[in-house]
Design a protein around this nucleic acid. Structure first.
Lengths: 298, 298
DNA sequence: AATTCATATAAATATCTTTTATAATAGTCC
DNA sequence: GGACTATTATAAAAGATATTTATATGAATT
């Protein structure tokens, strides 16, 4: 069977129009007709039903089932292409969310450099949610992801290596600045400057505000911790970040949260469970474990 | 790309001999050479390395990686074939381990029959471990599996519906027969007639004997509960089974185990996570949930 | 040196895929 | 209601790909 037929078919299921699919692939319309006919013969079943009355394409049960497998097959091949491309370039792509990159990566990079392996590492940055997708479809080989619940994905292996609480940061001259600890419910009337929603901080924050029955006043969102800290220092609002983001600055104060059952920022090493680690990648993983694992940290 | 090339390649990786692979598929030897060349061109990488010196075939990193994807692709297509075959025959295959079949299935079958759906169900029997594989590669659509730990598989969804303790069964005239409860450690010097190793009972049994630091004396194994019960009745030995296997006989006595942290026989409804349920299959699942779920049972 | 085993290459043949050209069917527009 | 449009199907020809046949190469084995 030709995988092109699967690609045509998969596109047909989403576009539901033979001619448009043909255009999409730069082929003529009968090509698509014939491809579907070949698949119907191969699987000995009707896959789509050309309903001329309502001029719409009906996908049969068999068609739906095949489409699921077709997309899995196409994804597999796409991932294989990317992985093998990187293998020949001797590159490993490491996906890092900004907070993790700032906090954990410097130590990892130092050890990778000492092992002469840093030049074979390329990093890509993005929120944990986006990186999960990037790992899944082969754009990255290994990721350090943050999450609030232990990760468990179908095609990914996750190894938790750290768990950090979330904290509140306020300006030095803020009324709460003298406090060391605080409960989330006391923040009911504060203004918040927060991370963008694509960060998992958002789910942790929502969890806490939902549990404390109030809708927090979020005055601004940014993807940049430094901007957020600057805004906090100027008293535009207070913020909610992991304790990992140590500001190294004297105009912002950190307050620990006292709530029971707080959400935690869980950091995990993640990779595809069908990814074959090369000798070099195994060493990268070892360095990650050694640096980030219980013995290696701080 | 032609999936045949992937099949040739995957076989080559396991057989490591071009001519034998050609024989295996009933084609001539150059076919395999050319298939590998096409793949190497497609992925722009060496996949195998023909080491003439030691007359062995070395698989490159890229080749290893491709092989993993090739087998995933071939499996996907194989599963698709089976699923679609059954779809056109309007059949759903239900995988059942013997204990579950005897204990839970009669009630399910009654409801399925009442709904006029029993004739579209075909069952296959096998140990839980074998059925897991059967589900994974598409021989069955839905399985009721037993396990000692909550199931979590890559490509399978598992929904736990019951948890039963394991018990000890002894002959009526056995010295222990008057006891109602017993700890596993008291069985140190008993003879055991057990289920075959392919049943999960074996892992539970091993767990208990390991925890109690003794190697039990297993005198016989069988896959047939009735035979086991007959042997127990004849005092050939005692056995270790779930409480589900209620013998309905007066020559065998059940003893509850008193141990803390006993392993449990967990029953789950399992299916492939990429299986598209037809309307009929959804109704089968509903009936399973209704019959086996917390409300529906006994 | 001759033989064997394993894989590669080239040309011919067989098979599959795509295009071109056209037909069929139903809906829309005036 | 006939012309027109949109969509998919079919048949034959052309183009592309896969497989075979026949033979070569290269190293190990006898």
């Amino acid at each position: 069977m030709n995988t092109k037929d699967l690609a045509y078919f998969h596109q047909l299921i989403s576009q539901k129009n033979f001619s448009q699919v043909a255009d999409h692939f730069g082929v003529t319309q009968p090509t698509i007709t014939l491809a579907v006919q070949r698949l119907e013969r191969e699987f000995n079943a009707r896959l789509v039903h050309r309903d001329r009355v309502h001029s719409q394409l009906i996908v049969t049960d068999a068609g739906q089932q095949l489409d699921v497998h077709a997309s899995a097959v196409l994804r597999s091949l796409h991932v294989a292409h990317q992985e093998i491309d990187r293998l020949t370039q001797q590159q490993t792509v490491l996906g890092l969310p900004p907070i993790i990159e700032n906090h954990y990566f410097p130590r990892v990079a130092a050890r990778l450099q000492a092992a002469g392996m840093l030049e074979n590492i390329r990093t890509i940055e993005g929120g944990s949610k986006w990186l999960r997708t990037a790992l899944h479809d082969g754009q990255a080989d290994i990721g350090l992801l943050g999450s609030t619940a232990p990760l468990s994905y179908n095609s990914l292996v996750a190894e938790e290596f750290d768990r950090q609480p979330f904290s509140i940061f306020v300006a030095k001259n803020h009324p709460l600045a003298r406090r060391k600890r605080i409960t989330f419910s006391e923040l009911r009337h504060e203004r918040f400057v927060l991370f963008t929603r694509s960060f998992i901080h958002d789910s942790a924050f929502n969890q806490l505000s939902h549990r404390n029955h109030f809708r927090p006043n979020v005055v601004f969102r940014s993807a940049d911790t430094h901007l957020i800290m600057n805004l906090v220092a100027e008293n535009v609002g207070i913020t909610f970040l992991t304790a990992l983001v140590d500001p190294h600055r004297d105009d912002v104060v950190r307050l620990d949260l006292l709530d029971d059952e707080q959400p935690a920022f869980i950091s995990s090493i993640v990779y595809r469970n069908n990814h074959v680690m090369t000798a070099a990648q195994k060493r990268v993983l070892e360095i990650l474990h050694a640096t980030l694992g219980p013995t290696g940290s701080r």
